[in-house]
Every structure is written in structure tokens, then in C-alpha cells.
Design a binder for these strands. Structure first.
Lengths: 143, 143
DNA sequence: GTGGCTGCAAATCATTTGCATATAC
DNA sequence: GTATATGCAAATGATTTGCAGCCAC
């Protein structure tokens, strides 16, 4: 367990487990915004016995601790992002793929609105992604 | 069925049914952002035989036709809004309530980003609403 | 008339939960 | 040693789907 992920967990006061490190390592630098089940499928190859429930439980823990960000634009399932800085996303309604969007947003400076205390901002653009546009009508998944 | 909702449906080329009019009438001017099940519960009082499946099917139809807007920030369930103009929402993570937010957003002028065609913009602020703040820690639902 | 809509019930699928065991500290 | 995490399987809950009868047009 001598890796920086263990340090990351300790810094948050979380018990260090193989599963948590595996999730963090898998997410680190991953730009695909995987769902809980995607993560489970990927880690299952390496750790055959890892449980889906453990993935779900840990995602809750890691999001609560601010180590991961949860993306809720897909009505079918939640997606996760290791990029915890506030940034917007583009959701393709054709291929259901999520893309990061690098746009500065002036809304991020608000601390509250109408008396409600803002703790997080999520911005989503929905439409057809460039890959699906290029593929013409119908599906067509990137790459 | 001599009401403006029937005209609204006809204008979209949709067959006019009692259930669809009921949904539109219930949603019209409703600022509560009800879920599919909320809508079903409310209409069930008036139309005892209305089916949950009909509500779900019609919500898909009405959203596709642009007569209602779907709000997907609540991981537990979808919410609906008769205000189809693009506007942002505040989601209280304590009481799970949705509020409209009247903030002009410069992002709305974008037609595309990174080559992806933007068809819709959804902006969410998450945090603790003023009612829950006033109620102190813990739950507490508005009004 | 005919195709689309409704209502019912069963099916689906993401996510949660209970519990016994195993592990971190 | 004890509290917490894990893994399994069953439970939950929103949403979808199949199908027979009904209604809009």
C-alpha cells in the first residue's frame, strides 16, 4: 500500500483499503466519466472478488470526502469524475457519452442565491456530440 | 375538452387525450417541480383510474415535444417543470427540494462547444436551501 | 375502421441494505 | 481487540415494457 493514494485517504481520515486505492487509481487521470458499474467491471478484472456493493459504498464515501465528483445528468445512472475542480460537462443524448467542457463560468463566484447557500455548481450542455454529428443520424459512439 | 391544453397538444400534432390534458393542466403554473410519481398521486385523486405507466409514457412524449422540461439533478428520480424557458435550478441536498433560480447566464448564447452541438443547457446549484438553513441542522421541509 | 393510447401487471435495472466474515488501526 | 469495511444476496424503488381493450381522428 505504499502509494500516494494511501496518503490521500489518510489525509481525509479514511481507513486505507485495497479497494479504495483501486478505485482511486482507476479514476486517476481517467477522463471517461465511468459509472459505478463501469468501475466495478474494470476493477473486477484485477480484483476478481471485488463486490459491486463495495464500489457503491466507497463511491459515496469518496464523493463525501471530496476525492471524487459525482455527475448526475444521466437519468439512467450516476457517473464519476476524478477531476474535482468545478467544470462543466457536455452530455451527448445520442451516444450518452460525457465530455469535459473547458469554459469559464461566472456563476461560480456566487456563494448564495435567493437565500440558499450554494455548496456546489453543476453545469450541463446537452445535445449531439461531434462524433455523432460526424456519423450522421443515429448512434455512433466515439472512437 | 374545450380548453387551451387541447389546442396546445394539437399544435404539436399529438392526439388529444384526457390524461394528457390533465398532466398539462396540473403542471401549468406549478412551481413545485413534481416527480412522475407526484404527478400520478395528484391526478389519481381526480382520475382514479389513471395509470402510472400512462404518466411516464406521456411525460416522455411531452418532454420530447417541448411542452415540458425534465430536470435530472436528483439521482433518485426525475422532476418536471412546465417552465420550458431555459433557467437554472437550486437543489437542496438536505430536503431534496428544487427551486427556480432567476440568474441570467452567459453560457446560453453558445450554440456549440468543442464541436459538439448544444441543444439544451442545464445549470444546477446544490447546497442547503434557506428553509433548511433557518431550521438549523437536519431536515426540515419548506412550508 | 385503424393506429395510437390507456391501464394493468410483470419485468428491468441502478442502487441500497442486512448480515457474517475479514481487515485496518 | 474493536470498530469499520468487504462480499454476498436479497430488497428497494424508479422506470419500462408487453399486451388486451379503448379512444381519438
Amino acid at each position: 500500500m505504499i502509494c500516494d493514494k494511501a496518503e490521500t485517504l489518510k489525509a481525509k481520515g479514511l481507513p486505507v483499503t485495497v479497494q479504495r486505492i483501486a478505485i482511486l487509481e482507476y479514476m486517476d487521470g481517467n477522463l471517461d466519466h465511468p459509472s459505478a458499474d463501469d468501475i466495478h467491471a474494470a476493477l473486477h478484472e484485477k480484483y476478481a472478488s471485488i463486490s459491486r456493493a463495495t464500489i457503491y459504498n466507497n463511491l459515496v464515501t469518496l464523493v463525501s470526502s471530496g476525492l471524487l465528483q459525482e455527475i448526475d445528468i444521466d437519468p439512467e445512472k450516476a457517473h464519476y469524475d476524478s477531476n474535482i475542480s468545478t467544470h462543466h460537462h457536455f452530455y451527448c443524448t445520442v451516444c450518452k457519452h460525457l465530455y469535459d467542457v473547458a469554459i469559464a463560468c461566472p456563476q461560480l463566484s456566487h456563494r448564495d442565491v435567493d437565500g440558499h447557500r450554494i455548496e456546489q455548481v453543476q453545469g450541463y450542455f446537452l445535445g449531439t456530440c461531434r462524433t455523432c454529428l460526424a456519423a450522421g443520424t443515429g448512434g455512433g459512439h466515439h472512437a
